[in-house]
């Protein structure tokens, strides 16, 4: 079984430790994960803003880089959804590229989804015993990929308590270029979400885009709850109590 990690540009640049955690976690589960060196960005920012020719150019590059793998795993819901849901649409009726896109789509998984659905693993370890976490359901993971309870199940099975949060499924307001085209609305959305944030040791999600937005807004508002990528917590879950304090996202 050849498994490729598509770390995604945001994790690569801003959540590097989440990438590291993903690799360690997958290896610990017996997956000899590879890292195709040519990978860059899936093209989602361009696609969502309507620049489909550019999105296609980036997607073609990605199709090439990930050719020949049985699975492509991403520590990011929205990028996984780009490959899984939107690549086939982007290349509809475009001959070989369309076939490649369909094939890649079928092999693409978000990290927790891959662990639960493909590896069939639901118990990673007890490394999160007693931890109180708030979980943010990223929109694309939730509604496009159908990743609903996988992340939370893995966290809970590792002993974490997921604190109730009425707004846990509300959009964080990021939306790619939306966040800079309509910044006031974007942060109003983030604020709505954050106003209800309960006390927790960390705010966790499987989407780097959302985390980036939330961390930026939280810092500005002085909300001190650390923001962590799901991959890091799952790796901690695997390791056992106290181990593997990873750095989390930092902000200026």
């Amino acid at each position: 079984m050849r498994v490729a990690l598509f770390v995604t540009c945001l994790v690569d640049q801003f959540f590097a430790q989440a990438g590291v955690a993903s690799v360690r976690l997958l290896r610990s589960l017996g997956v000899d994960v590879e890292f195709p060196r040519g990978q860059t960005c899936c093209g989602q920012p361009a696609f969502n803003a309507g620049h489909w020719d550019e999105a296609r150019a980036m997607a073609l590059h990605t199709l090439e880089v990930f050719e020949g793998y049985d699975y492509v795993v991403l520590p990011s819901g929205s990028c996984a959804s780009m490959l899984r849901v939107h690549y086939p649409e982007l290349f509809k009726g475009r001959g070989p590229a369309s076939r490649k896109a369909m094939a890649l789509s079928a092999r693409t998984y978000e990290l927790s989804q891959f662990i639960v659905r493909v590896l069939g693993v639901e118990e990673l370890g007890q490394g999160l015993a007693g931890r109180r976490l708030a979980y943010h359901y990223g929109c694309h993971a939730l509604r496009e990929l159908g990743v609903e309870d996988e992340p939370v199940r893995l966290l809970k099975n590792a002993g974490a308590e997921i604190v109730p949060w009425a707004e846990d499924r509300e959009c964080c307001g990021f939306g790619g270029l939306f966040s800079v085209k309509m910044p006031v609305v974007s942060v109003a959305m983030a604020d709505r979400k954050l106003d209800g944030l309960p006390e927790a040791e960390a705010l966790v999600s499987t989407d780097a885009g959302c985390l980036m937005h939330l961390v930026g807004r939280m810092a500005r508002r002085g909300i001190g709850v650390p923001v962590r990528h799901l991959a890091e917590l799952l790796w901690e879950a695997r390791q056992g109590q106290g181990a593997g304090q990873t750095e989390g996202m930092r902000h200026a």
Binding site: D12, Q13, F14, V20, R37, V184, G216, R220, A252
Partner: peptide, 14 residues
């Protein structure tokens, strides 16, 4: 204007 600026990880994953 509305959010703290972003700092990249010290070294990128790659």
């Amino acid at each position: 204007r509305y959010r703290a600026g972003l700092t990249p990880s010290p070294r990128p994953f790659h």
